[in-house]
């Protein structure tokens, strides 16, 4: 069953999920490579958690306007808005606090607010809130052709943008002062990178959920970094690893009942990292 899923023979839906997860993994791997080079790994965690209030608010807004509230582009718009607000909050608090404290505080607060809004929705009993909490851990079971297309186009756009910006992104990550003297605006580059990571987070909500999307961004990237000696090598390898884990994870979970897709993808990536660490890790330290 796993084998047939790996070969895209396990039915239309399973094939769709596998391809979607592979595209997401590639985009996340590529974006994550630049994110970790910029040393902002956990920023993506704060961003992912900050999508939750937006999802809830978007649901409420759509219900108030007479919809059923589960219109995906609407939910993603809401998620994007509060995630951007969370990002802004991290930057603002970082002026006064260490960045890690600012990140953690924003993560917890936005997430808490999101939970409050979700319980509010449950209490209101409006629309069709059932399954809204799948954004926490993702759910590929009901993935539609349209969802796979969103993931595919979104992922391709992210990869294309990263390819165009690869030089300034690498220069800002390596030596921001030099980059600035060479006419690159580091703040603008950071904003662009965060926007691309946000796009990956939004697309990934459907597959891995907001808690585990950070693994798709970070784990393949740090694995690739232990092998590659150049930035483009790191990004390419990271994207390939992400795609392989996404594809393999989706196929395995399609083959075994009850096995959730997102966590399996994450465990595959973690396995690749552990193996790499044993082979390429520094013995001393």
């Amino acid at each position: 069953m796993i084998l047939s899923a790996l070969l895209l023979q396990a039915g239309y839906n399973a094939a769709l999920v596998s391809l979607g997860a592979a595209l997401l993994g590639a985009a996340a791997g590529a974006a994550g490579a630049f994110l970790t080079l910029r040393r902002r790994a956990l920023m993506s965690d704060a961003m992912a958690h900050a999508t939750l209030p937006g999802i809830g608010l978007a649901f409420l807004a759509m219900v108030a306007l007479g919809g059923d509230g589960r219109f995906l582009p609407g939910l993603m718009l809401g998620a994007g808005l509060t995630a951007a607000a969370g990002l802004w909050a991290v930057q603002r608090l970082s002026r006064q606090l260490a960045e890690d404290a600012a990140t953690g505080a924003v993560l917890a607060t936005f997430y808490g607010a999101g939970i409050v809004i979700l319980t509010l929705i449950q209490g209101l009993g409006v629309g069709r809130p059932a399954g809204l909490e799948t954004v926490l851990l993702g759910s590929t079971a009901g993935m539609l052709r349209a969802d796979a297309l969103v993931i595919g186009f979104g992922g391709a756009a992210v990869v294309a943008a990263l390819w165009v910006l690869r030089r300034p992104l690498a220069m800002v990550a390596f030596d921001p002062i030099h980059a600035r003297l060479m006419g690159i605006n580091p703040r603008r580059m950071d904003a662009a990178l965060m926007a691309l990571v946000l796009a990956v987070v939004l697309v990934g909500l459907n597959v891995t959920g907001l808690i585990l999307i950070v693994a798709l961004l970070v784990t393949p990237a740090v694995t690739a970094r232990l092998w590659a000696t150049t930035v483009s090598g790191t990004a390419t390898l990271s994207a390939a690893l992400g795609a392989a884990c996404g594809y393999g994870g989706a196929a395995i979970s399609a083959g075994i009942p009850d096995l959730p897709t997102g966590p399996v993808i994450v465990l595959l990536a973690a396995g690749a990292f552990a193996l790499t660490l044993m082979i390429r890790g520094h013995a001393d330290g």
Binding site: P168, A173, F174, I177, G183, T234
Partner: peptide, 30 residues
């Protein structure tokens, strides 16, 4: 400008030649 001791991450995946190539950014662009 050559800083005193560039405050960079020395484990960054760049080779020596890649660092020098960064100096051509104004000519190579994106």
């Amino acid at each position: 400008y050559v800083p005193q001791r560039a405050a960079v991450d020395w484990s960054f995946p760049v080779r020596v030649i890649d660092v020098v190539l960064m100096g051509f950014y104004r000519q190579t662009g994106l």
